[in-house]
Nucleic acid binder design. Structure first.
Length: 835
DNA sequence: GCGGATCAC
DNA sequence: TATGGTGATCCGC
């Protein structure tokens, strides 16, 4: 959306102050009109408002500071420039020109690339001035429809960018179209949109576009060669009888030609008919040029660069560098300092640039100045990160900050789970009331995706920041949380397999027993009772398990395991996991994961109903217990500030003790396998201190984990990809466990001594205890998800939904023409020349 | 890998 | 109105 422009891209650098500093500052704020689209607004007025509002404000101060930093960067650059000798420059010139020659040879003019850009900004202006228009179904989601309904006809693999842009490669389509008869290229003009944009309905947009938008179909589309004239339209729209007018208009049809221009006009025509919104377009031999072209005659216009070198260079020649995608305020200013204002100058200074900028940068500059760009509309890359951030009026109490942080984690976790993503890095972003931005990142060995997992890391970083300024408060105006470092498909499958194998009935494990419902229930009850007996061992094991799990299941414990179990219960939920589905299909008879009774019906819905019933039963039963041991942050709203403060203190104390605990824990023998007890902290924790501990055990700093995990790997079946360290021989639960000392078998989950010495019986008990925890998690968390989301992400999901936020994949690459060009290995930094 | 910065939309 | 949110990338460390 170009709404942004309303605030920033304003033109009046000339009107407010003319000193270099002012100019620089205004440039920093984006107050220049080199980017298209702002002609016609009352710039002076807006600028005045901005200047008055910002003068002396923290925002303004920060802008000044940032500007100073840019100035320093420029200063450094200039110093570097002064050191360059003419000989060095000459050498650079030769190398750059060699590279340029390669580029030139790989120039590809054979493609016809189209860039479509909805004139959404003008629509928003229109809506602003005519609030009643908001009711009409235009604008919102318009591009997503065009995604599907129109553009694909011209290029099945067209590339939508955000909500209001798209690239198309219509090369093939054009060829085909040459032989098309007229009727295949004609479109009727519908009435609805005429009424909407008809003359009676003059809007702000119309004023902005001056005389252009008075009719249903923008006249600019119908210059010469189309079988309808402005006069015709006006005439028909002025008819009194509505029905008659309908008829007339329906009779009117438009025939488009076979040239690229005609095709693009047709696209724009259809877009306007469909949405009532106009679009601008650019036609060129590559993406970069096409994008710049679509800017040329905006709004509601189009421009084409003929596919010959001269035309390209003519277009590039006087183009201000700021118009180049990828060159923003800062780069513009730096180049300006070098006397580079246009693309021609960009080319002329290529040798110098190769010495002053990184290879990536000057390669890009060279591409730009030669008018080169990508001709391949890259497929949607996979998402690399997902984040959420919020701006608010000052928040300075730790309690509120933690609470907000958790809220963000919650929302983010939801989004992540919608896309089935788990990431290994969590980044906390903070902006204080002085507009200073800070990011703090933490990478763990196993991917996270749930609210709790993310929060545990984010909270830790937040605490560090709060402590860092104590006793002063952190005065925040923005907080954000990001998850990145997503698992690839293989990694996902691996962790899925691990959990499935563990749960698979009848495997080496004794989980088969879990299906004997009644006894399970008895065990559950006992187990939950015994868990209240806190023990030293619990702590050690919890800490240790947690780090084991991180490595082996590739998750930092907690509820993540449950998540996978959820997908077992409902196979449809994660259809892209073939293994999961397959395994489920194998178990044709459906078994309730709660009571473990086999269900007669193979109907999923019926099963779900049954599960709900089961869950409710258990929920009631265990309610008291759960609420007593609830995660303190989760319920932070229910606590008084004082009690929260205490908890926070406890947190910190605990953290200090933690490493000691955990180191000791490695000495404790442990035959416990497959699922971390941390998956259900409520079972092991019931005092405030222990609650915090179970939380904190995960927050161990990266370094801690990295330093210690290698000595703490226990085991897990099917860990083929994991290096197997010292405990490998205990891999299979059914094996005798040398780790259990003195022949006394103590369940590591409920911590009760087991009478039996039979290992398989003992293992059964452990398994049951484990499931008890899982059930608790289920009752607490996933009552709904079991039913929901069925089929929400089909296997063939194309990842095309623009609302998911995938934006401009590979933006920096489009300008590099081809892989050939990229190979060029002319490495020349200033260092090599100064040697 | 982290953190700051730049850029786009 | 009072100065946004999301995602990607680069660079220096």
């Amino acid at each position: 959306m170009k709404k942004h422009s309303l605030h920033c891209d304003m033109d009046s650098t000339k009107k407010i102050g003319n000193t270099d500093d002012d100019d620089g500052f205004l440039l920093r704020m984006g107050l220049n009109d080199n980017k298209a689209g702002m002609q016609g607004l009352d710039k002076e007025k807006i600028n005045k408002i901005i200047m008055e509002a910002t003068k002396g404000s923290r925002f303004y101060e920060n802008e000044l500071k940032k500007d100073q930093q840019v100035n320093q960067r420029i200063e450094k650059m200039m110093q570097l420039k002064d050191k360059i000798t003419s000989q060095q420059l000459l050498k650079a010139q030769l190398q750059v020109d060699k590279h340029a020659l390669d580029l030139e040879q790989s120039r590809d003019l054979s493609c016809t690339i189209v860039h479509i850009d909805m004139d959404a900004f003008y629509a928003s202006v229109e809506m602003r001035d005519n609030p009643e228009l908001k009711e009409k179904p235009i604008a919102v989601g318009s591009m997503s429809m065009l995604v599907r309904e129109i553009l694909a006809e011209y290029d099945p693999s067209f590339m939508p960018i955000g909500l209001d842009e798209a690239y198309l490669n219509i090369t093939e389509y054009l060829e085909e179209r040459q032989n098309w008869p007229e009727d295949k290229r004609s479109y009727s003009i519908k009435r609805e949109n005429i009424a909407k944009n008809g003359k009676q309905d003059v809007t702000a947009t119309d004023e902005l576009k001056s005389n252009e938008a008075a009719h249903s179909v923008s006249p600019i589309l119908f210059e010469d060669n189309i079988s309808i004239t402005e006069e015709q339209l006006v005439a028909t729209s002025q008819l009194c009888n509505e029905e008659q007018r309908d008829k007339e208009l329906l009779l009117n049809s438009v025939v488009f030609g076979t040239s690229a221009e005609e095709v693009v006009k047709e696209i724009r025509f259809r877009i306007e008919q469909k949405t009532g919104l106009t679009a601008s377009a650019g036609i060129a031999p590559n993406m970069m040029l096409a994008k710049m072209c679509s800017d040329q005659n905006k709004p509601n216009g189009q421009y084409r660069i003929s596919p010959d070198r001269q035309s390209v260079m003519d277009f590039i020649k006087d183009l201000p560098i700021r118009k180049v995608p990828g060159i923003g305020k800062v780069t513009e200013k730096m180049l300006k300092a070098l006397g580079i204002l246009t693309c021609t100058e960009l080319y002329q200074q290529r040798a110098l640039l190769s010495l002053l900028f990184s290879e990536t940068s000057w390669h890009n500059f060279l591409d730009v100045s030669l008018g080169l760009g990508s001709t391949e509309l890259e497929k949607y890359g996979e998402r690399k990160s997902m984040s959420i951030e919020r701006t608010f009026s000052e928040i300075n109490t730790a309690e509120e900050q933690y609470s907000l942080c958790q809220e963000l984690c919650r929302d983010l976790a939801q989004d992540l789970q919608k896309e089935g993503l788990k990431g290994k890095t969590v980044t906390l972003k903070l902006k204080n009331v002085s507009f200073e931005v800070k990011t703090r990142a933490s990478t763990v060995l196993a991917a996270v995706s749930t609210e709790e997992e993310i929060f545990v890391l984010a909270k830790d970083m937040l605490r560090t920041e709060i402590d860092g300024v104590a006793p002063l408060p952190l005065r925040l105006r923005l907080m954000g949380v990001r998850v990145s470092g997503f698992l690839n498909e293989e990694e996902k499958k691996y962790q899925q397999r691990s959990i499935i194998n563990f749960l698979k009935p009848g495997k080496q494990t004794d989980t088969a027993l879990l299906q004997s419902g009644k006894s399970s229930h008895e065990h559950f009850t006992k187990a939950s009772e015994t868990t209240h007996r806190e023990s030293f061992f619990d702590k050690k094991r919890a800490a240790r398990q947690e780090s084991n799990q991180e490595l082996l299941i590739n998750k930092p414990a907690n509820k993540q395991n449950l998540h996978d179990i959820k997908s077992l219960i409902n196979p449809v939920e994660e259809t892209n996991d073939t293994i999961g589905s397959k395994n489920l299909n194998e178990c044709q008879s459906l078994t309730c994961p709660v009571c473990f009774e086999e269900q007669r019906s193979s109907n999923l819905e019926a099963l779900n109903r049954h599960i709900d019933k089961c869950l409710n039963g258990i929920l009631e039963k265990d309610n008291a217990e759960i609420s007593a041991s609830e995660n303190s942050w989760e319920n932070s709203h229910h606590f008084s500030p004082d009690s929260k403060k205490k908890m926070s203190e406890i947190c910190q104390k605990n953290k200090m003790n933690k490493s000691v605990d955990m180191i000791e824990s490695t000495k404790v023998a442990d035959s416990f396998t497959s699922i971390s007890t941390e998956a259900f902290p409520k079972v092991v924790a019931n005092t405030g201190k222990e609650r915090e501990h179970s939380l904190l055990s995960e927050t161990a700093s990266n370094t801690y984990l990295e330093q210690n995990f290698s000595s703490k790997i226990t085991s897990l079946e099917n860990t083929e990809q994991v290096e197997k360290p010292e405990y490998t021989q205990e891999t299979e639960p059914s094996h005798s466990s040398g780790a259990i000392e003195d022949n006394v078998l103590v369940c590591p989950v409920c911590n009760t001594e087991q009478k039996t010495t039979d290992l398989s019986l003992f293992n059964r008990h452990v398994d049951i205890c484990l499931n008890k925890g899982i059930i608790q998690e289920l009752t607490e968390q996933i009552v709904c998800p079991i039913k929901s989301q069925v089929g929400s992400m089909g296997r063939g999901h194309q990842y095309m939904n623009p609302t998911t936020g995938i934006k401009r994949p590979g933006l920096t690459t489009p300008q590099s023409t081809s892989k050939k060009a990229k190979q060029s290995n002319s490495k020349q930094t200033i260092e090599t020349f100064l040697k």
